[in-house]
Simulated scan of single mutants.
Amino acid sequence: MEGATITREDGPSGGRWVLVRDGIEAEMTYSKLGTTTIIVDHTGVPDAFRGQGAGLALAERMIADMRAEGLRVIALCPFVKAQARKHPEWADVVE
Score class of each variant (00 low, 15 high):
30 Y>L: 07
66 M>W: 03
79 F>R: 05
20 V>E: 15
64 A>S: 14
33 L>C: 12
12 P>H: 14
61 R>M: 08
53 G>L: 11
21 R>S: 06
32 K>T: 13
43 T>N: 04
55 G>E: 05
88 P>V: 03
47 D>Y: 05
60 E>M: 07
44 G>N: 12
68 A>T: 10
43 T>F: 04
84 A>E: 01
64 A>W: 09
37 T>M: 15
16 R>K: 12
11 G>Y: 13
8 R>Q: 12
46 P>R: 04
10 D>K: 06
70 G>M: 10
59 A>V: 13
73 V>L: 06
33 L>M: 15
38 I>T: 11
40 V>A: 13
93 V>E: 00
91 A>F: 09
68 A>W: 11
84 A>P: 01
3 G>F: 02
45 V>C: 01
80 V>Q: 02
58 L>T: 10
87 H>F: 06
91 A>W: 07
27 E>C: 04
68 A>E: 15
59 A>Q: 10
71 L>M: 14
25 E>Q: 13
78 P>R: 07
2 E>K: 12
91 A>Y: 05
50 R>H: 14
34 G>Y: 09
27 E>L: 07
86 K>S: 11
79 F>M: 11
87 H>Y: 03
5 T>G: 08
84 A>H: 00
88 P>H: 01
95 E>D: 14
21 R>E: 02
21 R>F: 01
18 V>F: 08
34 G>C: 06
16 R>P: 01
22 D>L: 04
26 A>G: 00
67 R>E: 13
53 G>T: 12
54 A>W: 04
72 R>M: 11
28 M>P: 05
69 E>Q: 15
16 R>Y: 01
3 G>E: 04
18 V>M: 10
74 I>R: 14
93 V>R: 01
87 H>I: 02
71 L>H: 05
12 P>M: 13
80 V>E: 02
18 V>L: 12
9 E>Q: 15
3 G>D: 03
94 V>G: 03
89 E>C: 10
64 A>E: 15
41 D>P: 08
65 D>Y: 03
47 D>N: 09
8 R>W: 02
41 D>V: 09
43 T>M: 04
31 S>G: 15
92 D>R: 02
1 M>R: 03
87 H>G: 01
88 P>Y: 02
9 E>M: 13
5 T>Q: 12
54 A>D: 09
72 R>C: 05
